[in-house]
Design a protein around this nucleic acid. Structure first.
Lengths: 240, 240
DNA sequence: TGTTTATCTTTACAACGTAAAGATTGTGGT
DNA sequence: ACCACAATCTTTACGTTGTAAAGATAAACA
């Protein structure tokens, strides 16, 4: 009864057999203490478990490996279980992206720290945290910024992504010592925001795609990508 | 027997039966044994026809619609025909991306024009051509810059992409009135190149993803994205 | 002319997303 | 306590995709 799934995966995808999951599923029906390690018919917190499994699959196998069935295997449930919680692949991916945006925002907020940093130092710290998050979680960052399968009409995703934008705009406003009136921008303000975001986002994308490799390889001895980022930002960030 | 191909298309994809296909005589060879109406078994120039079909499919249906079978349908051949010419989907996509890079480079070179522009004007023209190409061919641009399924070990793709980088680096060098010694860069030079590329690339990606919508909507009356790009570049491009 | 080779088609298979129906368990009403 | 109902998870099924392999056809070549 359990055989049609978890097939050998003969072609190109990573075999990467699911580790555990052997004697678990059909074991105890009688006792229902909800503390047992055995997987009962009702998981109890499958939705969160699926999202965690999805993040593992994403960072391990990359975006093309992030499939509904792979996530279900990773979580140890039937291949159709995710559908019930997320509707379809777009739903799962969008909820995962929302988590990513929250992590991302938290990382940048933490980098800004308390009040012991100057405005300029905070802007630099935020930019570095931006790139650092993407390097630490390339799968997540790719999911958030390069997938067409995101449904921004989902409140959780829309909200988390909006917070990301608001944080950026707020930082720019603080640097210019202006207050942004939520509904209107001058051309200069808009250009400053677009410039900062485009610069950091573009650098991150090119870096993750390995397209800056040609540049990094030609740097003087001992120069890292962080120094490159630093040098790149120094003239631009300082002048807004 | 079953007729698994070409009939159903029940869900979203377009049926779009092969239309023309009569003018496939296409000379090229000494012998024209091709019947006037019926398609000859041997196409004659299927490789190029597939690439053109792929570009049509891409711009019409987007990246997710660009499948081997869809391209074969568009070209009016069997679903396995592309495999013979490109090996696999990565091969087809990579060759198409190479074409995209060549179009892209040609567009930027044309925008720089002859010698009637100043160095700064040429840099601006190049940046605007960059964004304009992406807006005119969003599918192609997405294919070139956001797909993981590219095989840069293919000479055609590697070469075309390399030319893109060389053109950019050359433009920066011209602006700084330096000559770049192909094998080494100072940190300042590298930062200038990374800055220009990141800025334009990031802006383009955010624009195509609709993530600048919040900014554009808050612009003063009658401000277009071109003006935003202009304002964004003006301070930065001018100072390198 | 006959053979060989390149090109295209047919057939086949595993993986995928998704819909629908069945099985199991938690929950609320009486 | 009991039972109907709803939520959760599994099975089954279908159409899609990429890709391998074998068959058919036309061009090239001896």
């Amino acid at each position: 009864m359990r055989k049609p799934e978890q097939a050998p995966a003969k072609t190109h995808p990573r075999p990467r057999k699911a580790a555990g999951r052997t004697a678990s599923s059909r074991a105890g029906r009688g006792r229902r203490t909800s503390r047992a390690e055995t997987a009962p018919y009702h998981h109890g917190a499958l939705r969160d478990a699926l999202l965690e499994a999805a993040e593992r699959v994403l960072e391990r196998d990359g975006l093309p490996g992030l499939t509904l069935r792979a996530v279900a295997r990773e979580a140890g449930v039937s291949h159709a279980a995710p559908t019930h919680h997320f509707g379809d692949l777009t739903g799962l991916v969008s909820e995962l992206a929302a988590i990513g945006f929250r992590q991302f925002n938290a990382a940048m907020a933490a980098a800004c720290g308390g009040g012991e940093l100057s405005i300029n130092e905070r802007a630099m710290a935020r930019a570095k945290a931006y790139v650092a998050y993407a390097q630490a979680h390339p799968g997540m960052y790719g999911l958030m910024f390069r997938t067409e399968r995101l449904d921004y009409s989902r409140p959780s995703l829309h909200e988390a992504a909006e917070a990301s934008f608001a944080g950026l705009a707020g930082a720019i406003a603080a640097k210019r010592q202006e207050k942004i009136s939520g509904d209107a921008l001058t051309l200069d303000q808009a250009a400053a925001i677009a410039r900062a975001w485009s610069l950091v986002h573009g650098f991150t994308m090119l870096l993750l795609d390995g397209r800056l490799g040609d540049i990094v390889d030609r740097l003087p001895e001992g120069c890292s990508t962080e120094q490159l980022l630093d040098a790149m930002l120094k003239t631009t960030v300082m002048k807004d």
